[in-house]
Amino acid sequence: MSVQPLHSSSNASDPHGSGGSLSGYLIGLWFLVLAAILWFGSLDLETPAAPTPAFDRAALDFGPRRTMMLDPPTTNIAGFDQQCSACHNLFKSNWDGSRPLSQHTAIDLRHGLNDRCSNCHSDDNRDKLATYDGRELPFADVVTLCASCHGPIVRDWNRGTHGKTLGSWQRTSPDFQRLACTSCHDPHHPAYEPMKPLPGPHTLRMTEPSSDHGLHDEPSNNPLRRNWSIPADHNDDHSENGGDEG
């Protein structure tokens, strides 16, 4: 340790050392101010992101989208599950489409050109399906029925490039389960209804849409856009990247 006479520059009485001493006081005071800020003001380390909006967790159910009709087919009438044949053995139906239905009014039939019951349902046995050439099929074999019109789709389904596979990606696994057509599509209106999307990103790097609406004709929220900081009145070649959106 170096030895230093006290009467040198560190001595407050030295007239040449008074300036350094004053700055020492200022530094000390500054540390005290900082200390007060740290002590009294809580250090706000929260990430500035809004909490994710709540949504219905039921939307995240795994598994088939709907329950496909299996054999024997049943329908709920007045609180009881009834087989189709229970009524249709008694009441012969020969609906030709010329008048409104008196039964099955809940069925919303929007299957393109296919607008007759007996195109898919057997006329003779209502517990069975039937292809257009009259072959009867069990409800479990609905894929064969759909295949009679939707060839390319069923070809893809057989390969596994259309449709949904649950359980396992190993084809030999007992859990491997390739869903049949009616596990996802309602046979009476096979196209999906539009659905509500779940909430978008609320993370720090994928934040809320910026407030600079009007910056572009259609403001882009992609943080990696080339021209995201170019003001609206800036009208040169670069702004054309945003212009072709609208």
Partner: peptide, 27 residues
């Protein structure tokens, strides 16, 4: 462990496909 990813199982449209590319018959 042979199961499917969560994003695939929840997908309502079957747009997601997953598997072993070394198996020539896999999806």
């Amino acid at each position: 462990e042979g199961r499917m990813p969560a994003c695939l199982e929840v997908c309502p449209t079957g747009a997601r496909k997953f598997g072993n590319v070394l198996d020539p018959q896999s999806e």
